[in-house]
Amino acid sequence: MSELKPVTGDVAELRRVFSCFPSGIAAVCTLTDDGPAGLAASSFTTVSIDPPLVSVCIQNTSTTWPVLRGHPRIGISVLAQDHESLGRQLASKHGDRFAGVAWEATSQGAVHVHGSTAWLDCSLHAEVPAGDHLIALLEIHRMSADPAAAPLIFHASTFRRLHVVS
Rank of each mutant, 00 (worst) to 15 (best):
M1P: 14
S2F: 08
L4Y: 10
P6Q: 09
V7F: 10
V7Y: 14
T8Y: 01
G9C: 11
V11W: 12
A12S: 15
E13H: 14
L14Y: 12
L14I: 14
R16P: 10
V17F: 13
C20W: 07
C20H: 15
S23Y: 12
S23G: 15
A27W: 05
A27M: 04
V28G: 09
V28L: 07
C29I: 06
T30R: 02
D33M: 04
P36S: 06
L39V: 04
L39N: 02
A40C: 05
A40Q: 10
A40G: 09
A40I: 10
T45D: 05
T45P: 01
T46I: 01
T46F: 02
P52T: 02
L53P: 01
S55A: 13
V56R: 02
C57P: 00
I58G: 00
I58Q: 04
N60A: 04
N60E: 06
N60G: 14
T61C: 05
T63D: 09
T64Y: 08
T64G: 04
W65L: 04
L68I: 03
L68W: 01
R69L: 03
H71S: 05
R73W: 02
I74F: 00
I74A: 00
I76F: 03
I76D: 00
V78L: 13
A80K: 02
Q81E: 15
D82A: 12
D82W: 13
H83R: 03
E84W: 03
L86S: 05
L86N: 09
G87I: 10
G87P: 00
R88V: 12
R88Q: 14
Q89L: 10
Q89H: 10
Q89K: 15
A91Q: 08
A91N: 04
A91I: 09
A91P: 02
S92P: 06
S92G: 13
H94M: 10
G95M: 05
R97P: 14
R97N: 11
R97Q: 11
F98V: 14
E104P: 00
T106C: 03
G109R: 02
A110P: 11
H114A: 15
G115M: 13
T117P: 08
A118D: 08
W119M: 07
C122W: 07
S123N: 01
S123I: 01
L124C: 07
L124W: 04
H125E: 11
H125V: 00
E127I: 10
V128I: 15
P129E: 12
A130D: 09
G131C: 13
D132C: 07
H133V: 14
L137A: 11
E139K: 09
I140A: 01
H141W: 03
H141C: 02
R142V: 02
M143C: 14
M143D: 01
S144C: 12
S144H: 11
D146R: 11
P147L: 11
A149C: 09
A150V: 07
P151M: 12
L152R: 03
H155M: 08
H155W: 15
A156C: 11
A156V: 11
A156H: 08
S157A: 11
T158R: 14
R160K: 12
R161W: 03
V164N: 05
V165R: 09
